[in-house]
Design a protein around this nucleic acid. Structure first.
Lengths: 166, 166
DNA sequence: ACGGATGTTCAGTTTTGATTGAACATACCT
DNA sequence: AGGTATGTTCAATCAAAACTGAACATCCGT
């Protein structure tokens, strides 16, 4: 099929639009990730896997994101540890491949819940040390701990709900 | 009333225990604050106000936490902007005084909700740009946005609940 | 008006954490 | 075994954010 110049230009324009949309999304998630306590590169890895939806190789990550292999290594390890992505072996291929886990969103919530729970633990540790005579401080710190506990449970509940639905 | 040496020592030991418990709590919250996206000093200010329960002056904050007045200024402004503390004027006193707001915990949740909602907005912005032809990516990004939306609403609900209870 | 106490601002410094890249270990292919 | 592709580790670098302190503005009492 022969196409004229105008048609070709349209097609190219469309492809470009898709490419820039993808690039902007990846960068944006990189920034959002930082406000979630993830390093920027980890966020971009996550974004790329989410956007593309398919398995992506270690080399592709380093290449497409233009970062060192060292960074890719530490990022994917972090994301694996939080159960957000998984490493898959492709028969016959040397490289590692990665993809988002099914329940990635739920697991993000679980990771938050874990952080909050750890904070609650620390505060309760403090509570142990405060002498019984300090009734005012004890009451207020106990309230604070209870707040963190409640948050943690709320997040866990939310995670469970997410897991059921999708 | 005359007390012997041993009694005095006991009293002093008790006071010391209370003081170190307080100091450790303040430091600990400083660290936890960082994982919440607050600067460390702001966390310590918050901790001091929470522990002591009463109004604390600008000067006391700088003195007790051993930080510059500049740091106190920016910290209290940040905490005020998030509605976690309030500045109170004492009649006849020149210094500003600060205390935790009643609904501080609920407001912390609200602040988180705001952050999450902002992230959701950004992701939806991305969604606008992705061409309709990219059905796979669009669906996945939309899911991601929905997840953030749900989180935001969940947090807002939690905040409302907290406000009712206490 | 003056002096001193107070809070804010901002340029400079310090600290913290992320990122790189080279050395290394491992596995595979020949 | 030798060579190459691959992922990890870690010391060095870089970037971002927190923090300081001095200059400034404001207010209050005198």
């Amino acid at each position: 099929m022969r196409r004229n110049r105008t048609t070709d230009q349209l097609i190219r324009a469309k492809r470009d639009a898709a490419a820039t949309a993808r690039a902007e999304f990846i960068e944006k998630i990189g920034v959002i990730a930082q406000s979630e306590g993830l390093p920027r590169i980890a966020g971009r890895v996550l974004a790329m896997l989410l956007y593309d939806g398919e398995e992506v190789s270690f080399g592709q990550l380093a290449g497409a994101l233009k970062v060192s292999r060292g960074s890719v290594s530490s990022s994917v390890r972090l994301l694996e540890s939080q159960q957000l992505i998984k490493r898959v072996a492709r028969p016959g291929e040397r490289q590692d491949y990665f993809q988002l886990v099914e329940s990635a969103f739920a697991n993000m919530v679980t990771a938050s819940a874990m952080r909050v729970r750890r904070a609650a633990d620390e505060i309760e540790e403090s509570l142990q040390i405060i002498p019984a005579s300090e009734t005012g401080p004890r009451a207020r710190v106990a309230d604070y701990a209870a707040y963190y506990r409640a948050m943690g449970e709320g997040l866990d509940t939310a995670a469970k709900a997410l897991r059921k639905t999708r």
